[in-house]
């Protein structure tokens, strides 16, 4: 195994979504808590791309925000290159860890301050971390960064609204690179973009990874994109990882019924006429998740045990799977 850059262990994040105290008292309602992330653990090796994939509300974006410190974990630990970053206090002790990680966001229209020139947006991490001194040198560095992401140095004088969505996402990447990070957390970086532009951004990210030796945590709902970019993949459902391992392994031989369902649902561009089995039902509310294995109400293989008992992840070949059916070896053959 490669040496790991990020270690996530039993990460938990709950959100209090109760109505205000007064309403609770008057309406006699209990506190309600969303278990957005409920015990997630994985490791990312240096130079790898680890993807988290799942449907909306599965907690994948929350994991991303926990890793970069936008939220603090309710429980569990986060370790970056041997440094503890599990809490706000730990993070301020290890400031270098924060500088070495950056984030790319989903919405290229909201992720850049509309009142700032691109030059100032990209220069901000440089100025904040005092990486380069002197205005001329900063200017020069921003120019280089803009060229590195496929824009021109002169674009620095423009405002974000003068760029298309794809170009803005390039600016976002330039800003992320400005702090000379080793680790980038990418939260759905292409899902707001058109396919042809998505291809440009994915190619750019691959190029940068090769050139700069970056490590990525990649969040996406699109399995095809995930397959394309990642070395390892984790499938999330209602706040938990249900299956994770090497990308090739997961996609060639998915074991968890949810992973199989997701793969089955991808529209077929080859039009081979493959028979699809659309799975009934939708993701239940994370406020009141189903008992036992959270996927059991939608699972074709669910048994009584699945309703009662949450499955523990077991190692199967090169992957980890949390499913009773896998454990009990009653999984049907995968058609893929």
């Amino acid at each position: 195994m490669t040496d790991s850059l990020l270690k996530v262990d039993n990460l938990v994040r709950h959100f209090d979504v109760s109505p205000p105290w007064l309403n609770r008292v008057i309406e006699r309602r209990p506190k309600s808590v969303v278990k957005a992330v409920d015990g997630v653990g994985f490791e990312i090796g240096r130079g790898e791309t680890f993807s988290l994939v799942g449907e909306s509300g599965c907690g994948k974006s929350t994991v991303a925000r926990l890793v970069v410190g936008l939220y603090n974990p309710t429980a569990g630990s986060l370790e970056f290159d041997g440094m503890d970053i599990s809490s706000g206090a730990a993070r301020s002790r290890n400031r270098s860890a924060q500088r070495r990680m950056q984030m790319i966001f989903q919405d290229p229209y909201a992720s850049l301050n509309p009142r700032w020139r691109v030059m100032d947006i990209v220069a901000e991490p440089i100025r904040f971390n005092r990486l380069v001194k002197g205005d001329a040198a900063i200017r020069q560095r921003v120019g280089e960064l803009l060229e590195q992401v496929g824009l021109s140095a002169a674009d620095g004088e423009k405002y974000p609204h003068e760029f298309s969505g794809g170009q803005r996402q390039r600016i976002s990447i330039a800003r992320a690179l400005a702090g000379s990070p080793e680790f980038l957390v990418c939260d759905e970086p292409t899902s707001a973009l058109d396919v042809s532009v998505q291809a440009q951004i994915l190619n750019l990210m691959k190029k940068l990874q090769r050139e700069l030796g970056l490590t990525y945590l990649f969040i996406s709902h699109d399995l095809a994109v995930v397959y394309h970019v990642s070395t390892k993949v984790g499938v999330m459902y209602l706040g938990r990882l249900v299956e994770w391992g090497e990308t090739e392994v997961i996609f060639a031989a998915p074991r968890h019924p949810y992973t199989r369902m997701l793969l089955d649902a991808i529209p077929d561009l080859d039009m081979s006429g493959r028979a699809r089995t659309p799975v009934a039902g939708e993701v239940p509310s994370p406020i009141d998740p189903p008992s036992g294995c959270a996927f059991h109400p939608r699972c074709p293989l669910a048994t009584d045990r699945c309703k009662r008992e949450a499955p523990k992840p077991v190692s199967v070949g090169a992957a980890m799977v949390a499913c009773h059916a896998v454990e009990e070896d009653r999984l049907p053959e995968w058609h893929g």
Binding site: G166, S196, Q198, Q200, K206, F251
Partner: peptide
């Protein structure tokens, strides 16, 4: 043609996707 090449697919594991440079004109 470019649009079809730009769509990532599962199975076809090319390192880079076909990309159409630039973007739709305003």
């Amino acid at each position: 043609e470019g649009l079809m090449g730009a769509i990532p697919t599962i199975g076809g594991r090319d390192d880079l996707l076909t990309q159409i440079d630039g973007s739709m004109p305003r």
